Computed example of a mutant assay.
Amino acid sequence: MTRHLLVPGRGIPRPDHWMRRWSAAHPQYMWAPEPPGPPLILADRVAALHAAVSESDEPAILIAHSAGCITTVTWAAHHRGPVRAALLVTPPYVDGFEPEDSSDLPWVVPRSRLPFRAVVVASRTDPYTTFAQFEQFAEDWGAELVDAGDVGHLDTATGFGPWPQGEQLVDELR
């Protein structure tokens, strides 16, 4: 059996956000970590993801949105564990971002090839990342790039409560 770990972005996903909907529809999906609010401390998020991945020898699929993608690739640069694949949905381009907490890890996005299969979902109209930056992430991480079209940041604000195409991508990663 494969575990599914939801890696949230910076804020708390609204009740109608696709990640919340998936969590409600699939009680076996676990948060890694449970969605906190700001501030986003990357070191804490990476530690929480490591604890969740290490909890079992059962393989996991990581499902990350926004800053959760940065958590995921940072984890992969420093740790190993039973991860089968990752769905990286609209990772933000944060080079040069100053952490909100001076004790945090530097926000330098790892650019090395991921040690597991990955899919980067890219938007043509994301306010945080250009399509060319998504393409570079996918190339650097050795990930497949999925062009989702004009979907903004693929969040509640851009109309993504339900996201059946995302569920199909997760099914393809199993």
Rank of each mutant, 00 (worst) to 15 (best):
S123M: 03
D147T: 03
R45F: 09
R10S: 11
A67Q: 13
P115S: 08
D16A: 14
G152L: 05
Q168N: 13
R14L: 13
H50F: 01
E100L: 12
E172W: 11
A132K: 11
W141S: 11
E167D: 14
L114F: 03
V53E: 04
E139V: 08
L87A: 01
E58P: 00
L42D: 06
V94R: 10
G161M: 08
A67N: 12
P36L: 11
G96C: 05
G81Y: 00
G11D: 09
E135I: 12
R10L: 10
P110R: 06
D16W: 12
R20S: 15
L169E: 10
G68P: 04
P39L: 09
Q136G: 12
L6F: 07
V94K: 02
W141P: 07
V46F: 04
P35R: 05
I12S: 13
D16T: 15
T158H: 15
F116P: 02
P92E: 03
L42I: 06
T71Q: 00
R117M: 08
D150V: 12
L105C: 01
G161S: 14
V83F: 07
A157W: 12
S56D: 14
Y29S: 11
H78Y: 06
D150M: 11
A86D: 01
G96N: 02
F116W: 04
Y93S: 14
P164H: 03
L145D: 06
D155P: 02
A132P: 01
T2I: 14
A64P: 07
V89G: 03
S66P: 08
T130V: 13
R80T: 15
A64Y: 09
S102R: 11
R111C: 11
W163I: 09
S103H: 11
P33M: 05
M30I: 05
P27T: 06
F160L: 08
S54N: 05
P106F: 04
L40K: 00
V151F: 05
L88R: 01
F97E: 13
W163P: 08
P110F: 09
R117H: 10
L154G: 02
F97K: 14
T72V: 03
S102T: 10
L40C: 14
A157S: 15
A25V: 02
L49I: 00
R20L: 02
P8S: 09
P39Q: 09
F97M: 15
R174K: 13
D57R: 14
F97H: 13
A132H: 07
R117Y: 00
G161R: 09
D126N: 01
I70V: 15
A32D: 02
I63G: 04
G9V: 05
A51G: 05
P8I: 07
D104R: 00
R3P: 02
M1F: 12
L5W: 05
P82L: 03
A85V: 04
Y128M: 13
G161I: 10
D104A: 02
S102W: 06
P38K: 09
D171G: 12
A32G: 00
E55S: 15
Y128Q: 13
G166K: 07
D171E: 15
D44H: 12
P39F: 07
L49N: 01
R14F: 04
V108Q: 11
T71P: 00
H17L: 03
W141K: 09
H50R: 08
E139L: 12
Q28L: 11
L169Q: 12
A157T: 14
G161L: 10
V83M: 10
